[in-house]
């Protein structure tokens, strides 16, 4: 089935931006419908029929190893739509717009973040990686800024670098394969979790948003690992 202009218009916004929050996607979809005189809501449910719209785009871009998928922000639970590469080893293919040294630096940073246990590294530690990639610190710093602008990285409140939602959505399989010892999966949704809540007693980790849903009605939450059952001390978590 061929794509209509509206689909292509919508897709181009994703190619240019990579990621939109659910709210932004809603706005983009509304603008798209207005521009191309399209029905915004489906007649039966009277809700925006974004699902089938995205579905037909996905069917057409799948052969190009691209996919629009939903992803949830680990920090605040906000859901987004991300355009991801599904090709193998997406980290290296992620963008030929970066140089080899830059990609190498990014790989090292990902490794450091995944292995940190907290899901973040200080900017000093991050900049110190530059020397191993034949880069100077100012260069590395402006590269990190660029990565933040393009939503691959983020700075968290204490000034540390962490992986942004776009990066996790794009590279989750890569990270799980590459760092099987350090990368953890969420006990609830089985997806990669970088910054989540962990049990004090065992290795169980879950996403903050998954924890919120799971422990919603619990008075005294306990570790979902049956064999552990330790009290789940979180809520302030980092």
């Amino acid at each position: 089935m061929a794509l209509e202009k509206a689909h292509k218009f919508f897709l181009q916004a994703f190619i240019a931006n990579g990621i939109f929050t659910a709210r932004e996607v809603h706005k983009l979809y509304r603008e798209t419908c207005e521009r191309f005189d399209r029905e915004f809501c489906d007649r039966v449910h009277n809700e925006p029929d974004l699902g089938p719209f995205v579905e037909s785009i996905n069917m057409n871009i799948k052969p190009f190893q691209l996919e629009m998928k939903k992803a949830v922000d680990e920090a605040n639970g906000v859901s987004s739509f991300v355009l991801v590469n599904t090709a193998d080893n997406s980290l290296t293919k992620l963008s030929s717009t970066y140089s080899e040294n830059e990609l190498e630096l990014f790989k090292k940073l990902v490794e450091k973040i995944v292995g940190s246990g907290t899901g973040s590294v200080s900017s000093i530690e991050a900049l110190n990686l530059s020397s191993t990639c034949k880069m100077k610190k100012p260069e590395a710093e402006s590269f990190f800024t660029n990565m933040i602008e393009h939503k691959w990285l983020k700075k968290i409140p204490d000034g540390h670098y962490a992986l942004a939602t776009r990066c996790i959505a794009e590279c989750d399989l890569y990270i799980l394969q590459q760092y099987p010892d350090d990368a953890r999966t969420c006990n609830m949704c089985c997806r990669l979790v970088i910054q989540g809540e962990s049990c004090r007693e065992c290795n169980t980790t879950i996403h903050k948003h998954c924890s919120q849903r799971y422990f919603k009605d619990e008075v005294v939450p306990v570790c979902p690992n049956q064999a552990c059952n330790a009290e789940w001390l979180h809520r302030q978590s980092r």
Partner: peptide, 18 residues
């Protein structure tokens, strides 16, 4: 052939970002 075309399209899309 179709694999080459896919690679080519992907390459053009990525490069065009600049």
């Amino acid at each position: 052939i179709s694999k080459i075309v896919v690679d080519l399209v992907r390459y053009l899309l990525i490069m065009s970002q600049k």
